[in-house]
Design a binder for these strands. Structure first.
Ligand SMILES: [Zn+2]
Length: 360
DNA sequence: CGTGCCGGGCA
DNA sequence: TGCCCGGCACG
């Protein structure tokens, strides 16, 4: 089944979408929807096509799927620290971060997103990985907003009928962490740093391609990337653990809260009309993702003094991205993209002339 | 060593 | 002009 048809089917409200979460190789569960494609959705053995909330899709083996009539959470796999979950709290469902999970006791300790000072313990059976009925995730058709923002965004671009404002306003919220992550380090080229559960794994990820003439996605982002993106997406306003995306384009200090947001920023602001020249996945060279824990995320850049919240912010840079950091900002195309990505260099660099893309 | 790039070559 | 590369300086 092609992705185009998959998207089409999913966008069509007549298609039944089952909201579940799937366990990835990093031990975290990621929410998404199952799409009953060519194979019937029978909750039984086999693999299912799943679209994750960050726009990636893959075939997922049923024993990794949690929710609905699939696996239960007490099947031996502990929830990991930082896992986003949903529990009942004084009668209403709230989002929380898992602190730890005792498999023997069957108990999970969680920290409420909205009230980080509150720690609660729940039986694992009462912990959901997917919000029950997230009203704000419904579109006008009443179809659960189980699609990724990426998909929504593309659909919205195609036909401007979708109310883009809600989606955009939410994710476009610029954060005020500029002082933290404006270092001009490119992400470098990670080779086998991060584990990639691809071909010979139950879960494999592919990037969403739009229907542009590009034949296929050659670059597969490491799992950790899109999974973090997803968590940021889901826990958009969720406190203590959050991932932000810092543009690393020379002198640009834009920080956005979502993966689709930073991708769109790079495409529109830094590539403009040349967006067609962007190699698939090339945007990934122009931002870093930073995990932060903080008391409050401020949405308006202008409302904050330059020296604001840095002290209360704890940064945990993704280890692989920090390695290429150097004080001499003399990072040029060769260093940023690497020899193996020579086709991404600016022309002058390709000719061993003075770089025109990264000026000093 | 790797990296940036000048100068010079070739179509 | 577009394109490639030897070689050198620099860290
Ligand atoms: Zn360059």
């Amino acid at each position: 089944m092609s992705l185009a048809s998959l998207q089409h089917r999913t966008l069509n409200s007549s298609v039944k979408c089952v909201r579940v979460a799937a366990r990835a190789d990093d031990g975290y569960f990621y929410p998404g929807v199952l799409v009953n494609g060519d194979d019937a959705l029978n909750y039984g053995q086999g693999t299912y096509t799943m679209i994750f909330d960050n726009g990636q899709y893959s075939r997922v083996d049923y024993n990794r799927i949690v929710g609905n009539n699939f696996q239960r959470l007490d099947n031996g796999y502990p929830l990991r620290y930082g896992q986003i979950a949903y529990v009942s709290y004084y009668g209403s469902q709230v989002a929380a971060n898992v602190i730890d999970h005792s498999v023997r006791e069957g108990e999970v300790r969680l920290q409420l997103c909205k009230q980080p000072e509150v720690t609660i313990i729940r039986n694992v059976a009462e912990v959901n990985l997917v919000p029950d009925t997230p009203n704000k995730y419904r579109n006008r058709n009443g179809l659960k907003r189980s699609l990724s923002r990426e998909v929504i965004y593309k659909a919205a671009k195609r036909r401007a009928s979708l109310d883009e404002d809600n989606v955009m306003g939410e994710e476009e919220a610029a954060l005020v962490l500029t002082t933290l992550c404006n270092s001009p380090l490119g992400k470098g080229v990670e080779e086998s740093d991060s584990p990639r559960p691809l071909c010979n794994s139950d879960i494999s990820y592919r990037q969403i391609c739009d229907e542009s003439p590009r034949t296929e996605c050659s670059k597969l982002p490491p799992v950790q990337e899109q999974t973090k993106a997803e968590q940021a997406d889901i826990s958009a306003n969720c406190s203590p653990i959050k991932t932000v995306y810092c543009c690393t384009w020379p002198k640009c200090r834009k920080v956005l809260s979502t993966y689709p947001g930073i991708i769109r920023h790079i495409r529109t602001i830094h590539f403009g009309d040349n967006t067609e020249k962007l190699d698939n996945g090339e945007e990934e060279f122009y931002f870093t993702e930073v995990e932060v824990t903080m008391d409050k995320v401020v949405d308006d850049v202008a409302s904050v003094k330059p020296s604001s919240p840095t002290e209360s912010v704890f940064i945990k840079e993704q280890n692989t991205y920090i390695t290429k950091k150097s004080k001499g900002d003399g990072k040029k195309c060769r260093k940023v993209y690497g020899m193996e990505n020579r086709h991404l260099w600016c022309t002058q660099c390709r000719w061993k002339k003075a770089c025109t893309r990264f000026l000093d």
